[in-house]
Design a binder for these strands. Structure first.
Length: 438
RNA sequence: GUGAGUGUAGCUCAGUCGGUAAGAGCACCAGAUUGUGGUUCUGGGGGUCGGGGGUUCGAAUCCCCUCACUCACCCCA
C-alpha cells in the first residue's frame, strides 16, 4: 500500500492562518461598507442547477461552455456556482421578495468556481464580494454601487497597518459604459458587424474568431493593426435610445454629486449576457494585463428571465485574489499587516521542573477563563527550551510555575519584551496581566 | 484548450565539460556549571536530486515519456 502526499486540487489554495488577517481585512471592510448603506448579507447556495447559469450567464459564454464544475447526481445536473448574481436572483425570487418587498440591497462574500487554467490572479476557486440591488431602475443605484466598489478599495487601504496609507489617484480607475438594452443594443451590434465585416480579413486571427463568437470583443483588441481598423466603428452611445441615454447621463451626474471621477470607455463590454445599460469595471493599471479588480453593471431583465416580474437590478463583484495582488504590487504595504492581526496568545505557561503538568494545565485554563489567552508546552521540554519557545512564539509574557513558588502560592511572571521578572501571588496574576504589567 | 519555463532538505537555492559534492543559508533539535528566551559558539537529524525508461564503465547533470507547478494566450474576479 503506497502512501502518497495529497495536494489541494489544481487551482485551489488553502488560506492559512498567516493569511487570515488579510482576509479578514477584506471581509470586514466589505461588511462594514455594505451595512452602512443598508445592504443585508445573503448566503445563497454554492450549488445550483446547471440550467440556472445557462439561462442567465448565457449559453455561448466561456463560463458556461467550458468553465463550470458540474456534477450529475440522479436526475439533477448541478454546478458549483461560477458567479454570484444568478444564485442571488434565484434566492430573491424563491424567498418571495419580488412581491413582498421588491427593493432589496444585498451582499455576499464567498467562493466561486471556474474550471480554467490557473495563472497569476486567477484561480479555480476564488472569493468574491458581491453586491446586488434588486427591484429598481433608479439611476442613483447605479451610482451608489459604483461608488461602493471604489470605496471598498480606498477603505481597505486605510485599514492596513501603514500610517497614512492611501490608494493614490491614478492607481485605480473606474471605467464605465452603457450597453444599451434590447432594440438599441441589437441595432448597434448589427452596425458593428457590418462595419467590421469588410476588413475582417485584415484583422488578427483572434479577432476573426471573436467576430464569430462575440463581435463586440473585436473592439477591445490590443493589436495595433486591429486598433486602426476598428477606428471609427459605430459607438453604442450613438445608438442609445433617448431613455437609455438619459439613464446613462443621470448615472454620470450622480457620480459627480458624489465626487467620484470615472472615465467613459466604450470598449468595456462585459462578457455575460444578462448585462444591460450601465456596465463598469474598476481597474488597477499597475497590475498590467490582469488589471480588472471589479466588474459589474445593470441586468434589468434577469429577474424576469428567471421567472419573476420585470424588475431592474444592478450590482458588481470584487475579486479578493486580485485585490490582495494589488496591495502586494503597490509594495507600500503588506496586506498581512492589518488591524485584524490578533497575534499569538498573551501568555506562555512554563513549568520549571517535572511533575507539574497538571499545575500548568490548570493555570492555563484559569487564565483563559478570565479572557486571557494562554498556551503551554506539551513536549516535556526543559525550562530553557520552553522559554525559547515562548520567545520565538512572540508571546508577551511567560508565567513560570515552579515547585518552590507552588509551595508559596505564587508564580513567576516574566515580561518577554523587556526581560523583567517578578514573583507574585497566584491570586494576583490575572489582575496584574489585565493591568498590563509585571 | 494552446504555448513557454521550472522541478535538488520544511523554505530559498548552489551544484562546472557526465567522474567520491548530496551541498549552503534559513528553519528545526541538542549542548556551552545543575530552574529562564531573543545574540553568539559547537554539534546533530533530515533528501530514492518530481516519477519511469534509455545512453554510458559511471547520470542531479545527456535523451525520451510522464506528472506537478509557474507564467502567458483564449476568457475573466
Amino acid at each position: 500500500m503506497e502512501r502518497r502526499q495529497f495536494r489541494a486540487p489544481r487551482g485551489i489554495r488553502d488560506v492559512l492562518p498567516e493569511e487570515i488577517p488579510a482576509w479578514r481585512l477584506l471581509e470586514e471592510t466589505a461588511r462594514g461598507l455594505a451595512h452602512l448603506r443598508g445592504y443585508r448579507e445573503i448566503r445563497p447556495a454554492l450549488l445550483e442547477e446547471v440550467e440556472l447559469f445557462t439561462r442567465s450567464v448565457g449559453e455561448v459564454t466561456d463560463i458556461v461552455q467550458k468553465e463550470m464544475f458540474t456534477l450529475q447526481k440522479g436526475e439533477s445536473a448541478l454546478a458549483l456556482r461560477p458567479e454570484g448574481t444568478a444564485g442571488i436572483v434565484r434566492a430573491y425570487l424563491e424567498a418571495g421578495y419580488a412581491s413582498a418587498a421588491p427593493l432589496q440591497r444585498l451582499f455576499h462574500i464567498g467562493p466561486m468556481f471556474r474550471y480554467e487554467r490557473p495563472q497569476k490572479g486567477r484561480e479555480r476557486m476564488f472569493t468574491q464580494f458581491d453586491v446586488e440591488v434588486l427591484g429598481s431602475l433608479d439611476a442613483r443605484l447605479d451610482a451608489e454601487v459604483i461608488f461602493l466598489a471604489a470605496a471598498f478599495f480606498e477603505s481597505v487601504a486605510i485599514k492596513v497597518k501603514a500610517p497614512g496609507f492611501r490608494i493614490a489617484r491614478g492607481e485605480l480607475e473606474v471605467r464605465m459604459n452603457s450597453m444599451g438594452d434590447g432594440d438599441d443594443r441589437n441595432t448597434w451590434k448589427d452596425a458593428v458587424r457590418s462595419f467590421l465585416a469588410p476588413t475582417m480579413a485584415e484583422h488578427c486571427e483572434l479577432c476573426r474568431a471573436r467576430f464569430e463568437r462575440n463581435v463586440l470583443r473585436v473592439l477591445d483588441c490590443k493589436n495595433p493593426r486591429c486598433k486602426e481598423l476598428n477606428a471609427g466603428a459605430p459607438a453604442i452611445l450613438e445608438y442609445l435610445s433617448a431613455e437609455n441615454r438619459a439613464h446613462f447621463e443621470r448615472v454620470q451626474e450622480y457620480l459627480r454629486v458624489l465626487g467620484l471621477p470615472v472615465v467613459i470607455d466604450s470598449s468595456i463590454v462585459r462578457g455575460l449576457d444578462y448585462y444591460t445599460r450601465t456596465v463598469f469595471e474598476v481597474h488597477a493599471p499597475a497590475l498590467g494585463a490582469r488589471s480588472a479588480l471589479c466588474g459589474g453593471g445593470r441586468y434589468d431583465h434577469l429577474i424576469a428571465e428567471l421567472g419573476g416580474p420585470d424588475l431592474g437590478a444592478v450590482g458588481f463583484a470584487v475579486g479578493f485574489t486580485s485585490t490582495l495582488l494589488l496591495f502586494n504590487e503597490l509594495k507600500k504595504i503588506d496586506p498581512k499587516e492589518t488591524v485584524f492581526d490578533e497575534g499569538p496568545a498573551l501568555v506562555f505557561v512554563v513549568s520549571a521542573g517535572e511533575g507539574l503538568e497538571s499545575d500548568v494545565f490548570r493555570l492555563a485554563e484559569d487564565l483563559r477563563k478570565n479572557e486571557i489567552s494562554a498556551v503551554y508546552d506539551v513536549e516535556q521540554r526543559s525550562l530553557k527550551a520552553q522559554m525559547k519557545l515562548a520567545g520565538k512564539g512572540g508571546h508577551r509574557y511567560a508565567v513560570v510555575v515552579g515547585g518552590d513558588e507552588l509551595a508559596r502560592g505564587s508564580v513567576q511572571l516574566k515580561d518577554l519584551e523587556d526581560g523583567t521578572q517578578h514573583e507574585l501571588a497566584r491570586v494576583e496574576l490575572v489582575a496584574r496581566l489585565r493591568a498590563g504589567g509585571v
